[in-house]
Design a protein around this nucleic acid. Structure first.
Lengths: 330, 330
DNA sequence: TTGAAAGCGCTAACAT
DNA sequence: ATGTTAGCGCTTTCAA
């Protein structure tokens, strides 16, 4: 078995307290004792039992990251960055997948007691306001449709969407569609708002038939939406997709119909997945600073940790528009 | 604060043992008591403290999943499946990213004491044989160059690679290159072996200049490798890439040089990322059964859990070749 | 400065 | 069938 504090103490001929002090770098330990303890530590290969330590300290050493699915590139990337950011605060990350369903999200939230995690980072899609009965500090990633008293971290979705659509307008496109409308999702509502604002600003008419909903934000949904747009009597000459996956699907559908991108159809995505840099054509996309989102969320939770004050933060992280081949004719 | 077993016991007017029995579904509890306990459980909203339970049970409730990077689609997908599989055994998953470096992998292994996790699933790339001083049951994903006494789960890399190259040969291709050779990686060696075996079987010459190494298996590496192949005086008419990311990069490089895929160049990948279904052209790929890999790994660990017997398993999971546009001319 | 001992919340002998 | 109690490994008063 593994050496415990007691084993080390016995070997060093001191009390567990002294060993504990050395291990935790506390107070002043008599140099002589310190040396003996360190030798014993080395000899036994002592490693603290985090479970026991956390039980005693009244913390768990974990934060939860609740997200739809790791197979979605955006969340996979984000998860990697959250894990890295959490490490700075000696936190381990527990990933819970909800698959974007209400029941999945409720299940995940229910399992989030203070006995399991110290805090949680949430990326919900279907949750209702009264579902948020959290018993641990939490932060929401991206805006949410319902108004809940939880701090948020994310980019300015309206501004980002306006930037995307303005770019299409600056290219001379006038029949601009949007893919990804969703009745429940807050981010969808905001991106739609940005889309409409950019159109209005340019004096372009808003055509409801150019707004295509998407139940999910997967590639298949983007392809299906694009097909429906291409079936129109008077199809669009540009599309703003609410994420890159939808855009990739849209590009695939366009290719299958021999619609040339960007010549016949310009496409902009959102998220800037690595995949979008290598697609043919490469995809113009809104690039949120994911590392900034991850570390802002973790830092905010860390600050909240001890003090359950009720200050609500709304951290806005930067974004940029990366112009690639899907919008600019070579 | 949260209700403890003791609180519930006091409220129900029974001992903690009885409550514990009810909570854990143990033995026979007098119906009357059971009802009272359940009422108290409900009233207090009791949730067991997993940390305390695991401390007492001498387990941690966690398994580690050590992988290069979550931003690599294959590992992101796998991680999602491992999390799901682990849930069946009441395990939570701790993801450690190594970024494929020796130091990163050593660091991850070092942190893997039995006080932290009950077991570990490893996907190492650089580790040496003598690094494997594990103190918990572990399973290796995919073969490894060095021969270590750890059970493995994965597909038959030689057979899968042969299937990929045979497919190219059956298409009439004769100048078949390979991208992804790597001196340290076991899987790379096996895939190369399958490549050579398929060539030999068909009586095709093995041309070392057609084997391009890749330091990493990212899209950028595939693009660079492809460029070097296209620079040859007599370039290949087909490429077998050791993973989909390399293949996606290769397709991108081909497109930039106006090399038509599959007409001028057929491309096969390995992993069957979702991304490969939607690329243009879509990518023919070897599709390992990732769910089978994930559950086989977790099940194996679960079986090992109590009994530290030294039986070495080598579980072979199924794979298939999915033929898509990157190899078949429409 | 260090030791003794209590106790975090839970489970499992052991006793009844 | 249920209560009592020890103790998992650790941190932390409280004394000395």
């Amino acid at each position: 078995m593994l050496a415990t504090l007691k084993d080390v103490a016995r070997l060093a001929g001191v009390s567990v307290k002294t060993v504990s002090n050395v291990v935790n770098g506390y107070s002043f330990v008599k140099p002589d004792n310190r040396r003996r303890v360190e030798a014993a530590l080395e000899a036994t290969g002592y490693r603290p039992n985090l479970g026991a330590r956390n039980l005693r300290r009244g913390r768990t050493g974990f934060i939860a990251l609740v997200l739809p699915e790791l197979s979605i590139p955006y969340f996979a990337e984000l998860a990697g960055l959250v894990i890295a950011a959490a490490q700075e605060h000696e936190w381990n990350v527990l990933i819970e997948q909800t698959f974007g369903t209400l029941s999945g999200e409720r299940l995940a939230l229910a399992s989030l007691g203070p006995h399991l995690v110290d805090a949680a980072i949430l990326s919900p899609e279907a949750l209702q306001a009264d579902d948020f009965q959290l018993s641990v500090p939490a932060v929401l990633l991206g805006e949410h449709a319902v108004d809940v008293p939880i701090s948020r971290v994310g980019i300015d979705n309206v501004a980002a969407s306006m930037a995307a659509v303005r770019h299409l307008i600056s290219l001379g496109r006038t029949r601009i569609a949007a893919i990804g409308a969703h009745p429940q999702r807050g981010t969808a509502a905001l991106r739609l708002e940005g889309y409409r604002a950019a159109l209005a600003e340019a004096g372009l008419d808003f055509d409801p038939s150019f707004v295509v909903p998407a139940l999910n934000y997967h590639r298949a949904d983007g392809a299906a939406a694009m097909k429906s747009l291409l079936d129109m009597r008077n199809p669009p000459d540009a599309v703003f997709c609410f994420n890159d996956l939808l855009a990739i699907g849209a590009m695939r559908a366009a290719a299958e119909r021999f619609v040339r991108v960007p010549r016949d159809l310009a496409i902009v995505g959102f998220d800037n997945n690595e995949e979008s840099v290598y697609s043919s054509p490469s995809l113009t996309s809104i690039a949120p600073d994911k590392a900034a989102i991850a570390s802002a969320a973790v830092d905010l939770l860390h600050a909240r940790a001890g003090s359950p004050d009720l200050v609500l933060d709304d951290v806005q992280t930067p974004f940029s528009l990366l112009v690639r081949e899907s919008t600019v004719v070579r």
